[in-house]
Simulated scan of single mutants.
Amino acid sequence: MADIDFFEKGTGQPVLLIHGFCETANMWTDFANTLSDEFRVICPNLPGIAGSPISGDQISLEEVAITLEEWLDECQIQDPIVIGHSLGGYITLALLELMGNRIKAIGLFHSTAFADDAAKKDMRNRATVFLKKHGVDKYVTSFIPMLFPENKRGKLSPEIERAIEDAKRSSLQGLVAYTGAMRDRKNRLEVLKNYSGPKLLIAGTHDGAVTIEASRAQKDAFSHFIELEGVGHMGMVESKDETMEIIREFCRFCVN
């Protein structure tokens, strides 16, 4: 039995929102509250995060996808729209490869189908060393602010502090495991291209984690491509109302 901690709200078409690295399902609370008047919104914590356990500090995105597939079956969640932020987007693509047309539609939120390049792999390795040496609290305190454009960090300091506190609910094993999983993930651009359902990509022009150039390089694989001007890696925080409406309209498109 898949041991996944989650919350859900609403009824109707299932919409699965998958959090990113150094995040928990809590990041989607406002989205769930808003979207649940039309959809059944389900927000899981990935293994090793918050209330979802993990065994060891190694995992692959394929293993996470299998766990989520089992959990979806156990919960009788069928034909979901799956939307993932960053790491959640990588997992969305792994789930898509596994489940295919049993997924109604997908959305990538500041994410990519491309694999890590050599420089990014090296960064992941250094992050692993830092995590093992200094622990979760020190790592997330330095990591989270870098996801936001420098010129917005002062204005968004309360939101950044909340994100840091939420990230501290991640286990050390979980963060080490996902750092390795992201480093070792494969290119899933062909999986994306071959999928015939609706596909959304939300990109930030000031995203330092997934550059706008990388997003534009894969835009033709998506049915819906939206750029957020001046937004970094955390559009759900930086442009909350706009991105909630984008998700709502995409979900409406998928069911009509």
Rank of each mutant, 00 (worst) to 15 (best):
I247H: 04
K152A: 09
A167I: 04
E23N: 07
Q76L: 07
G100H: 01
V41F: 06
D30F: 05
M236V: 12
D3Y: 11
T34F: 15
G100R: 07
E69S: 11
F114Q: 07
L108W: 10
V82M: 05
D184C: 02
D241H: 12
T112L: 10
V64R: 00
G235E: 09
K132W: 00
I247L: 15
L98S: 04
E8N: 10
A181H: 01
W28M: 11
L61R: 05
E161I: 11
E161Y: 08
E238M: 01
N187L: 08
P158T: 02
L131N: 01
A94D: 14
H110P: 09
K193V: 13
G235L: 08
T34R: 14
L192I: 02
M236A: 10
I103P: 00
D37E: 15
D3I: 14
F114S: 00
C43A: 14
E238H: 02
G197K: 08
S239N: 11
I4V: 14
D73V: 11
I91H: 04
K219N: 11
M123I: 13
L16G: 08
I91D: 05
K199A: 08
D137P: 02
K9N: 09
V210N: 13
G230W: 06
S223R: 08
E229I: 05
I18E: 10
N45I: 07
E23W: 03
G51E: 02
M146I: 10
C22V: 11
Y178A: 04
S86R: 09
V129T: 11
G204Q: 08
L93K: 06
R162T: 12
T67L: 12
E249H: 10
K240W: 04
F250L: 08
A214H: 12
G174L: 02
Q78L: 10
M146Q: 14
R252T: 09
L72R: 07
R169Q: 14
V210W: 03
V140G: 03
T128E: 13
E159Y: 13
I49R: 01
T67G: 02
K199F: 05
P198W: 12
L72A: 13
G10F: 02
K199G: 07
I226C: 03
G10C: 07
F148Q: 05
K199D: 08
E190C: 04
R248H: 12
Q13M: 11
G107W: 03
S170Q: 07
F222E: 02
G12F: 11
P53F: 07
I226Q: 09
I18A: 01
